[in-house]
Nucleic acid binder design. Structure first.
Length: 564
RNA sequence: GCCCCCGUGGCUCAACGGAUAGAGCAAGUGAAUUCUAAUCACUAGAUUGGGGGUUCGAAUCCCUCCGGGGGCGCCA
């Protein structure tokens, strides 16, 4: 890679000049007139004394430049601004670089990456807020995978606990419907049952009943088996079509019901006994707690007075099971930001119990999705479900397709609608909250998934019109400003994906793709491809842009239609 | 009370401590003999919530104030 070459050549010179070794960062100047890569290295070096004492930046830069034998892949190297060194790559090299685009170079340090996302609890309808974890998690999985890491996609769902107890109480009160229900009706019925139980929980008598059901569930009371199994099955079935729609295939779903016993056991094993103090967990007012204050965090209950493990408690069992399942180097939990405090505490507890987990656990915290009208609330009916969203967007796609030359194809409508939806999530940085507007948030033009898909389809259309196929070997060709901008942009694909992986920010890739598509559309608008003197080169350029767009979209979980 | 996050054009959002703060939407003006107009060009719109500080350089780091959101022992 050209970037690596520059870096190595630079390192050598810096070392020869006797400067302190620092991390040299080559970055991409926003403005192409500042080169294809730039470094602020001398500004860093000016801060520390070298063997020659303190020097001013330009002086160091000049020394470096004198020693730096301009490699043949560079057009020029310049000192600019207060002490930047800018590198300009030869067009020839940029063209050469396009060979094999669309296939990412594998990491030289491949890791096993465990990604846990989705985790919508049973009994909840899947709304546009939940979509964030699915879409982010899947994109990250694909990004890591494409860089040569081994990815394990996991889901974790709460199929035991107070919410289930509430639902069971509600089912008993409402009575099971006599007629056959379809998936959606089943989910709806369970939702009602849960709401009933939840409401009644405020009544002290009923609270007691529900708490008893809860404890009985944890004790695997056979009397509850039938109703529990039924409720569990119904609610889990509801998720299948969603995974299908979003194109997600989990390697494994984990359940609270399979980890709670071991979780409790782990906690008890790591608890103070009357003889022995200073262990990880303590008893307090009849419950077992983790004294987070000791570590600058807060205290949380891991086992309740009733002897049931809480979510925290179960997570200890889960941590062990997950690691045993897939000996990962890195584990990423894609979970809403409200859980930040929670994760700090359980990660601390985990690393105390399982020291080998230290430094391997990450919480990718994403912001909540609010509506323009305010917070979503199923109580007030102020909720947009995934189904609602998908239907509205599909309809909009159909509307536009009616006005185009391309005939309406259901598959394409699906791809574009999903592309629009997924992109509308991925273009944002994960952490900040999102404000969602059903009519406006999912865009089909401008800065959008369909914009990139359209650009791809446009390219395919051009390529289809040429029978001769695409040729190679244009190193000596003249390129204009726009063509060069495209070549320059193609150069950055690999490192953009790497950066997206390193920072857990797929939005970096999303922005990159929009920028590349924008450049291509600009080129397309201003330059004739077929029939021009540079036809072969322009076809080649188009093809490469197409490959990168297709791959980039794939990494975002988006399909690229051949026509739209 | 303690802790965390956020505040960037009218709206929704970008921006490894770097060069002139970028897009999209909305507004206005244009582009069709030509490979897909879900496109493109141009115009207008910002003291990056306020005030200090660190730095050669701050939207970004530190302090403080204001505004919004979230979290803090028996829920998940």
């Amino acid at each position: 890679m050209l970037k690596q070459k520059i870096l190595e050549d630079l390192k050598k010179v810096v070392k020869e000049l006797g400067h302190k070794t620092i991390d040299i960062v080559l970055s991409i100047p926003k403005n192409p007139s500042f080169g294809d890569y730039t470094t602020n290295l001398v500004l860093q070096l000016a801060k520390v004394k070298s063997t020659k004492g303190k020097q001013i930046p330009t002086e160091i830069a000049n020394e470096i430049l004198q020693k730096f034998e301009k490699p043949d892949y560079l057009e020029k190297v310049e000192i600019a601004g207060r002490g930047f060194i800018n590198f300009y790559i030869k067009n020839k090299e940029l063209i050469k670089n396009t060979d094999g685009l669309g296939i990412l170079q594998k990491s030289d340090n491949p890791q096993k990456v465990f990604i846990e996302y989705g985790h919508v609890n049973p009994l909840k309808e899947i709304h546009i807020g939940h979509l964030r974890t699915f879409i982010l998690g899947e994109s990250l999985s694909r990004i890591y995978d494409s860089l040569g890491h081994e990815v394990f996609r996991a889901n974790y769902q709460g199929d035991i606990g107070l919410h289930i107890a509430k639902a069971i109480w509600g089912i008993r009160k409402l009575g099971l419907p006599s007629k056959q229900l379809n998936l959606e009706e089943k989910a709806k019925f369970l939702g009602q049952a849960y709401a009933e139980g939840n409401k009644s929980y405020e009544d002290p008598h009923i609270k007691k009943e529900i708490d008893q059901i809860n404890t009985a569930l944890y004790q695997k009371d056979p009397a509850l088996k039938e109703i529990y199994t039924l409720a569990r099955e119904w609610s889990l079935q509801y998720f299948e079509p969603i995974y299908e729609l979003l194109g997600i295939k989990y390697d494994r779903c984990f359940f609270e019901s399979e980890v709670f016993e071991r979780g409790k056991e782990i906690i008890l094993e790591n608890m103070d006994s009357p003889r022995e103090a200073g262990k990880i967990f303590e008893e307090n007012a009849g419950a077992v707690i983790f004294p987070g204050e000791k570590y600058g965090l807060h205290t949380r209950v891991f086992i309740t007075t009733a002897g049931n493990p809480t979510y925290e408690g179960k997570d200890m069992g889960l941590a062990e099971l997950e690691y045993d399942t897939f000996n990962y180097d890195k584990s990423i939990h894609v979970v809403a930001s409200e859980q930040e405090g929670y994760f700090q505490v359980i990660f601390k507890a985990m690393e105390l119990i399982f020291p080998y987990l230290k430094g391997k656990k990450y919480h990718l915290s994403y912001g909540v999705v609010d509506l323009k009208e305010g917070k979503m609330s199923s109580r007030t009916g102020n909720v947009i479900t995934v189904d609602d969203l998908y239907h509205v967007v599909s309809e909009k796609v159909r509307e536009i397709m009616k006005q185009t030359k391309v005939h309406i194809d259901q598959e394409v409508v699906r791809m574009v609608a999903l592309g629009a939806i997924k992109f509308s999530y991925l273009k944002f940085s994960p952490r900040p909250n999102m404000v969602f507007d059903l009519e406006e948030s999912v865009s089909l033009e401008g800065d959008s998934g369909p914009y990139i898909q359209y650009t791809y389809a446009r390219i395919q259309s051009v390529l289809r019109k040429t029978q001769k196929g695409v040729k190679n070997g244009f190193e000596s060709i003249e390129v204009d400003t726009v063509e060069r901008a495209i070549l320059r942009s193609l150069l950055y694909f690999q490192e953009t994906v790497e950066q997206a992986a390193a920072t857990l920010h797929p939005n970096l890739l999303a922005s990159y793709l929009v920028e590349l598509a924008r450049l291509y559309n600009l080129f397309y608008q201003g330059s004739r491809i077929i029939g021009s003197q540079k036809q072969d080169f322009r076809l080649k350029l188009s093809e490469e842009v197409g490959k990168v767009l297709e791959k980039g979209l794939y990494l975002l979980g988006i399909e690229a239609p051949e026509r739209m």
